[in-house]
Amino acid sequence: MSSRTKIIVLHMKEIIYTAVFAVLGIVLILLLLFMFLPEREKHTDKEAKYTPGSYTSTVTLGSNALEVEVSVDESRIHSIRFSNLNESVSAMYPLIQPTMEELAEQIYAKQSLENLEYSSDSPYTAQIITDAIREALKKAETTK
């Protein structure tokens, strides 16, 4: 009974190199897949909520009518501003522009009119402006 024993000599360096190159090959394939596959929608915010454009609503302060202009694309609010604010109105109502800027920053961040924080200096002014923005956004909403 003579058995012939075969001895295979493997160098540890060759095994390590092979494993490293196999891992790098897999990483390269995964990277190429992620780069060239079409992107899926990550958020449901990408649904078309608005008809793109600029929409206005009117705020009446005393005898002055101000237009609040809201610019939107299909899913986001991009700008909110007064379109006809002049110096005499700014002088008569000094808190109107800072209040608009505070509200606009919050709305840009949240993309919603829910849970806005009103300044204690001008809560009524903020409410009037918020109502005007809400009215302009109603005009912008898409009907499904």
Rank of each mutant, 00 (worst) to 15 (best):
L66S: 10
K46P: 00
V68T: 14
N115P: 10
T58R: 06
S54E: 13
L33P: 01
E105K: 15
D73Y: 11
I16V: 11
I133K: 05
T142V: 15
N64Y: 13
V20D: 10
I8K: 08
I107G: 04
M1W: 00
S57G: 11
L103K: 06
I7Q: 15
K6I: 15
E105S: 15
I96S: 05
E14R: 08
S63K: 12
Y93R: 03
T142Y: 12
I7P: 13
D131T: 11
Y55R: 03
D45W: 02
H43I: 00
E117S: 15
Y55C: 09
L10M: 09
D131F: 03
T130L: 11
R4L: 12
H11I: 00
R40A: 07
K49T: 01
A126L: 05
Q97R: 09
K138F: 08
I29Y: 13
I80N: 11
E74A: 11
D73C: 07
A19D: 04
S2N: 01
Q106W: 06
L37P: 00
I96N: 02
T130I: 14
A136Y: 07
S63T: 06
E114V: 14
Y93T: 04
M92H: 15
K110M: 02
H11E: 02
E135P: 05
P38F: 00
I128N: 03
Q111E: 09
I16F: 11
V20K: 03
I107W: 07
S83Q: 12
N84S: 15
F21T: 01
Y50T: 05
Y93L: 06
K46V: 01
I26Y: 05
M35Q: 10
V59G: 10
R81G: 15
I26D: 05
Y17Q: 04
F36D: 04
Q111A: 06
V68R: 08
F21H: 00
L37A: 05
L103N: 07
D121L: 10
K138D: 08
D45I: 03
T51S: 07
E67R: 14
A109I: 07
K42R: 09
T143S: 15
M12L: 10
K6G: 06
F82M: 11
A126F: 01
E114D: 14
P38Q: 01
Y55G: 08
I128E: 02
V89G: 02
S57M: 14
R76L: 04
